[in-house]
Design a protein around this nucleic acid. Structure first.
Lengths: 119, 119
DNA sequence: CTTGACTCTGACGTCAACGTGAAGGTTTAG
DNA sequence: CTAAACCTTCACGTTGACGTCAGAGTCAAG
């Protein structure tokens, strides 16, 4: 398929898809005219990219992560354990932040209750 | 203390500290010379800012959240004592932020589990 | 009273992750 | 055959969270 169809099938803008290629995340084939040609695997690849972005990773980190996330298109690299480490750390930081926010919300609830009693 | 010491004590650059002030997150006193003067409470405030930033919140969101994060250190801004309605809105926004972070973390958990199976 | 560390205010630079638009070539539906 | 739809590269714009000077004022110590 060409870039327009991939865009529709993934919900990712054409501009973003070209940008992902520029960053080394996608490597579509080319027609003599220069048109990019994608395969079905690229649909899955784009979705993985999106999931990782949604998880707060940067494209640079994703470039490093993709070889580890193979379903069939390559080999596991030694960078994998490090990657898992990074992901776990990232998750833990998010967990801390959630804890902070929950404490904040509890504080806020106390204040609201106090003000209701006072007012 | 002045900005240099706050920077050392928090590990946050002086530029960042001035930026936080510019964005309304810090309100240090000033000497006649213009030098910023911070208190111990600001050390805690900066750490909270960093935790929230690490969680992926923007400074704008943090600006909205900080007034509600009272520990008793005088960080109350006019919006807080004002209306319980405001506080409830703030609390709900915090709740939304928690929800987003939890979704992000769930994403990460899925990825981590998948990679562990693969590796 | 001068040195050297510290601080101030601009103001431009950067990086990420795209968006937007120009100027023009290609493919396809009717 | 033509117009729409799609494609190309080039290149500047945007937002967020700062970095990095420049040029000038401030302050504690010798």
């Amino acid at each position: 398929m060409r870039i327009g169809e991939l865009s529709r099938r993934t919900g990712v803008s054409e501009r973003a898809l070209r940008y992902y290629e520029e960053q080394g995340l996608l490597r579509p084939q080319r027609r003599p005219s220069g048109y990019r040609v994608y395969g079905d695997a690229d649909v899955a690849a784009v979705r993985r990219i999106r999931v990782l972005l949604a998880a707060g990773l940067t494209l640079a980190q994703i470039v490093a992560a993709l070889p580890c996330m193979v379903d069939d298109d390559g080999l596991l690299l030694p960078s994998c354990p490090e990657l898992v480490d990074e992901l776990v750390k990232h998750r833990d930081r998010i967990g801390e932040a959630i804890g902070e926010l929950e404490a904040t919300r509890a504080n806020l609830d106390t204040i609201i209750a106090a003000e209701r009693r006072a007012g």
